[in-house]
């Protein structure tokens, strides 16, 4: 505690540079970046410039936004973080796809949890047709085949209304 407050007074925060696959560089405090396990291990190995060949600039910008906000997490701003998370997962599946792949690669557990839960929530209780639309899946069943598969798991399709909305 004492050492961290003295270093912030003197401005001696350790900085790291993340480099996206597009070649853009982002300078960040180490304390923010170590939420990411993959980078944390590289820092421990003495790296200060970290090339991320699997993460493009657009995705990295979003991930940095997430890490910065979550580095501010305290006991008193839980509600604020919750609202931030809610806003963060809005967007098309294309965006979520890039984010969840990057979160998995970078081992950011909190972000992985958030995104997987959000994608699961988008599937849960949706009609088959809505799931296809949301996740860009084309139906490769013939009507007869689809009927047969549906019959095999009839119990799963029974009871309750299925949500047709595409959000």
């Amino acid at each position: 505690m004492a050492s961290s407050s003295s270093s912030s007074k003197t401005g001696l925060k350790k900085m790291l540079t993340l480099k996206s696959s597009d070649g853009d560089e982002f300078e960040l405090e180490e304390s923010i970046v170590i939420q990411c396990q993959t980078i944390k291990h590289m820092v421990e190995d003495g790296f200060s410039l970290i090339p991320l060949q699997n993460v493009d600039t657009k995705t990295l910008t979003k991930i940095i936004e997430y890490m910065k906000k979550h580095a501010e997490k305290t006991e008193s701003n839980k509600e604020e973080i919750k609202n931030f998370n809610k806003e963060f997962v809005k967007g098309s599946f294309d965006d979520q796809f890039e984010l969840v792949s990057a979160a998995n690669y970078l081992h950011i557990n909190g972000l992985m949890d958030l995104l997987c839960q959000s994608i699961a929530d988008r599937i849960n209780n949706k009609s088959v047709r809505a799931v296809r639309e949301i996740f860009n899946i084309s139906n490769d069943y013939t009507p007869d085949e689809e009927e047969k598969v549906r019959d095999e798991h009839k119990w799963a399709h029974e009871g309750g209304e299925f949500d047709e909305s595409l959000d």
């Binding site: 969840v100 792949s101 998995n104 992985m112 997987c116 839960q117 994608i119 699961a120 599937i123 849960n124 209780n125 088959v128 799931v131 296809r132 899946i137 084309s138 139906n139 490769d140 069943y141 085949e145 689809e146 598969v149 549906r150 095999e152 798991h153 119990w155 799963a156 399709h157 299925f162």
Partner: peptide, 23 residues
């Protein structure tokens, strides 16, 4: 590995429903 992360958060009924989405 990500698919399992996602699907394991769903109720079993939803997981089986999804089988009808595509082959």
């Amino acid at each position: 590995v990500i698919m399992v992360e996602i699907l394991s958060r769903l109720p079993i009924k939803s997981i089986f429903c999804c089988k009808t989405v595509c082959k």
